[in-house]
C-alpha cells in the first residue's frame, strides 16, 4: 500500500510536507518487512538533522532498522504515542503511526525524493 501525495525515499521512509514542516514515518513495505514492531527510539526534539542522517530506530522482535531523515531540518515534535503503542506503525503507518515532524531548513534536499508513482515503480524493482 502506497499513500498518494507523500514523498518517499529508497530507504522506505515517507514525508508529508505541509508548509515548512515534514511529517515523517516508514512505509507499509518497511513495516511489513519488520513484522510486529515492539520499540521505537525517537530523536530528541530540537535535534538538527541532514537528509539521510539517522532519525530514529524501529525494532521488531526480528530486526532493528534505522530510520533516516528524508529532509534536512530540525526535529520539532515526536509521536509520543509510539512509546507505549509502537504497533501503531504496523496498524496505520501513514497515519497515527507517524514518527516525528521536522521543520525543513533546506528545501533543495526534497528534490531527490520520489513521488508515490515513482516509489511504486521502485518497489517493483526490489
Amino acid at each position: 500500500m502506497i499513500a498518494e501525495g507523500l514523498l518517499y525515499t529508497k530507504e522506505n521512509e515517507w514525508a508529508k510536507v505541509e508548509g515548512q514542516t515534514a511529517t515523517i514515518g516508514i512505509t507499509d513495505y518497511a513495516q511489513e518487512q519488520l513484522g510486529e514492531i515492539t520499540f521505537v527510539e525517537m530523536p530528541a526534539i530540537g535535534k538538527n538533522v541532514k537528509q539521510k542522517d539517522e532519525l530514529a530506530v524501529v525494532e521488531s522482535s526480528k530486526a532493528a532498522s534505522d530510520v533516516y531523515s528524508p529532509v534536512t531540518g530540525k526535529v520539532t515534535e515526536v509521536n509520543s504515542k509510539l512509546e507505549s503503542n509502537p504497533e501503531l506503525i504496523n496498524n496505520d503507518c501513514y497515519g497515527s503511526g507517524w514518527i516525528c515532524k521536522v521543520k525543513i531548513t533546506d528545501e533543495r534536499t526534497m528534490e531527490n525524493l520520489m513521488d508515490s508513482k515513482q516509489y511504486e515503480e521502485y518497489l517493483k524493482g526490489l
Binding site: 525494532e59 532493528a64 512509546e83
Partner: peptide, 10 residues
C-alpha cells in the same frame, strides 16, 4: 520484561 515499548534484547 517485554511489554510494548521495551527495547528488545538481542
Amino acid at each position: 520484561p517485554g511489554e510494548k515499548g521495551i527495547r528488545p534484547v538481542r
